[in-house]
């Protein structure tokens, strides 16, 4: 519970900081809508020539797009900003201030920055998702909803651990600020069901850069495609990766010597 209080405290600070630049709200809204419009435009063009893309109906792909925006928003709201700050603070030595706080440093580092306007992307994603589900006319049972939330959480944990592992590389190689950009450009591929891609790319998007766990698999849960092997696998992977990222963090921290020390 104390981590939640830390999060709230950071959230408050970030909101105070951001309210000084209120126009950012309008700009973020404009950019999110533009981004959504682009994605929907692309889908509209493709679905004038087919009504089934790799076995997915238009509204099922739309649900996937909703998940894509939802998770993308979560990543840019809380995961990526903290990790960017971590990389920066390892380089210039300001990580010192985080380490001296009387709470787990990993939690502080992970929660320290919140890009609050990204909440718009999350709302937009949810909106698209709900619209798609209504259009599909499918009754989402309790079990399916639970599976979806479970897969979304597992996907979130996998992405968080992946980001943390990449960011802790800064303890060994100081200049890694570009490394997080890899994820951004690869994440674009998550707009489409990964089953479209040829084997090598599908494995790459599943196990090397885990985009599939963030987008396709939660969407599969909603469109009754998820089998129990994938479900168990995703949960197991999220636990393993979380532990591995913790080990990376601990080992990396031992190498950190600070700027002033």
């Amino acid at each position: 519970m104390s981590y939640f209080r830390i999060f709230l405290a950071f959230l408050r600070v970030n909101i105070y900081g951001e309210t000084a630049y209120r126009i950012n709200f309008i700009i973020q809204l404009f950019q999110s809508l533009l981004n959504l419009g682009m994605t929907l435009g692309g889908l509209a063009i493709i679905f004038t020539y087919t009504n089934l893309l790799g076995g997915w109906q238009p509204n099922e792909v739309l649900a996937l797009v909703g998940v894509y925006f939802l998770i993308g928003g979560i990543i840019r709201l809380i995961i990526q900003p903290g990790m960017e700050q971590l990389i920066e603070s390892v380089r210039d030595g300001t990580l010192d201030f985080r380490l001296t706080k009387p709470a787990d440093a990993q939690a502080i580092v992970s929660l320290q920055r919140v890009e609050i306007w990204e909440i718009l992307e999350i709302i937009l994603g949810l909106g698209v998702l709900i619209y798609a589900l209504v259009k599909l006319g499918e009754i989402i049972g309790v079990l399916q909803a639970a599976e979806f939330v479970l897969m979304l959480t597992a996907g979130g944990v996998i992405i968080y651990s992946f980001f943390l592992i990449l960011s802790t590389l800064s303890f060994w190689f100081v200049r890694v600020e570009n490394i997080l950009v890899i994820f951004q450009s690869v994440y674009e591929a998550g707009r489409w069901p990964v089953s479209l891609y040829p084997g090598w790319l599908r494995y790459g998007l599943t196990f090397i850069i885990p985009v599939a766990f963030a987008t396709t698999i939660p969407a599969e849960a909603l469109t009754s495609r998820l089998n129990w092997q994938t479900l168990v696998g995703a949960i197991a992977l999220s636990i393993v990766l979380f532990i591995v990222s913790r080990i990376f963090w601990k080992t990396g921290l031992k190498r950190y010597s600070g700027a002033s020390a």
Partner: peptide, 26 residues
């Protein structure tokens, strides 16, 4: 900045590749 070069190449290649694959499927 060799790493940036690799990251940048991935971006330049992946986008046309994704649309290529989507249209091939269609």
């Amino acid at each position: 900045y060799r790493a940036s070069l690799v990251i940048w190449t991935i971006g330049q290649v992946l986008e046309p590749l994704v649309y290529l694959i989507v249209w091939l499927v269609v």
